[in-house]
């Protein structure tokens, strides 16, 4: 046997040992008496790593581990088409009792924009976990000092106000449309310029290419504090503690748009399995790790499950779908 052959043999043996080892560990983990979801739970993230949904799954994974809720959880990213590729994959996994898909406001718009064959009604609602809020900003030297100035400009000539934010049909776009509608401007007339994220929208704002920016509060918070951007309003129901910016409602505009994130299970699971998943998620949100997550990310704790969540979900689907359609995106 030549040395080359020996090396190849050895490599092969090592690989085989590794595979067998991994299989043994896997079998051992799923062998105990607890439910399948308790021993191994999969988060489907219908977006790329690094986004908001991905963050929810990874923070959730951490809380499940730290709080000893689930022995082994993993995150699988299935990005594409506003989250509807991941949704379709979850629907195909019918009757899988140990899987949770992360979802939220953006997916409702995504389903309309992408003419998805599946909707959120095709999966099993488990819980709403947390909300964060949108902020409307202008550069520090902008002529718009208040939301009223911005509204006046929009009423005068909506095309003359370039508004930059995230992708088409996402929360940033929807909020722009809701504001326009409430102040009597045709949402389709809004000059909305989509960017691939808050960072790109930010440079366009600071280089005065766009006049107004809309994004999640965290994306702009640093620039607001540094005095480079001026925050005009946030999209929350009530003033958010720690954020010294008035809400739209306080300024007479009826546009509330929480960017909520929640989890859904595949269709066709039994009532007990659904109960078990709800219990797991409830335990997860009670861990200190999750409380720390909420604080670090400045998320609002809006935990809801069961009938309460279903009610919220169906109202939200109606509302967001209507706005998206009004924007001419369907």
């Amino acid at each position: 046997m030549t040395s080359k052959q020996r090396t190849l043999r050895a490599l092969g043996a090592a690989a085989a040992a590794l595979i067998i080892g991994a299989a043994t560990v896997n079998a051992a983990q799923s062998g105990d008496g607890a439910s399948e979801a308790r021993s191994k739970l999969t988060f489907i993230v219908p977006a790329d790593p690094g986004g908001g949904w991905d963050l929810v799954a990874r923070e959730g994974q951490n809380a499940l581990r730290e709080g000893d809720v689930v022995a082994n959880s993993q995150v699988v990213n299935v990005p594409g088409a506003g989250g509807t590729i991941g949704l379709a994959q979850t629907v195909r996994q019918a009757e899988t009792s140990n899987m949770l898909m992360v979802t939220g406001t953006v997916m409702i718009g995504g389903i309309v924009v992408n003419r998805s064959a599946h909707t959120l009604e095709d999966v099993t609602p488990i819980a709403r976990l947390a909300d964060d809020y949108e902020v409307i900003v202008v550069p520090a030297d902008s002529p718009y000092k208040t939301t009223a100035d911005l509204v006046d400009a929009l009423r005068e000539d909506p095309r003359a106000v370039a508004i930059g934010g995230g992708s088409l049909g996402g929360t940033d776009h929807l909020l722009a449309a809701m504001i326009a509608r409430d102040v009597g401007v045709d949402p389709q007339q809004v000059n909305y310029i989509p960017f691939s994220g808050g960072g790109e929208a930010l440079t366009s704002l600071l280089s005065h290419s766009v006049d107004v920016g809309i994004s999640g509060y965290n994306e702009f918070s640093d620039q607001i504090e540094a005095g480079n951007l001026r925050a005009l309003a946030v999209s929350a129901h009530e003033p958010v503690p720690g954020i010294d910016v008035p809400t739209l409602a306080e300024q007479g505009i009826d546009a509330v748009l929480p960017n909520w994130r929640g989890v859904m299970a595949p269709p066709g699971i039994s009532a007990e399995e659904r109960e078990e998943l709800t219990e797991i998620v409830t335990e997860m949100t009670r861990t200190p790790a999750w409380q720390d997550t909420l604080e670090r990310n400045r998320w609002d704790d809006t935990f809801q499950s069961g009938a309460e969540f279903e009610e919220f979900l169906s109202a939200e689907i109606d509302r967001i779908t209507t706005i998206t359609e009004e924007l001419g995106l369907s």
């Binding site: 790593p49 690094g50 986004g51 991905d54 963050l55 990874r58 923070e59 994220g197 808050g198 960072g199 790109e200 930010l202 440079t203 965290n218 994306e219 918070s221 640093d222 620039q223 504090e225 540094a226 480079n228 604080e295 670090r296 990310n297």
Partner: peptide, 28 residues
């Protein structure tokens, strides 16, 4: 300095900053 990710890798590092509760930008 800006929180502007100009490559796929930088975008994921931006997410990591956020996981630590930090926002890259002028104050970082």
């Amino acid at each position: 300095g800006l929180g502007l990710p100009t490559s796929a890798t930088a975008a994921i590092m931006l997410a990591a900053f956020q996981q630590y509760g930090m926002q890259p930008g002028p104050l970082l």
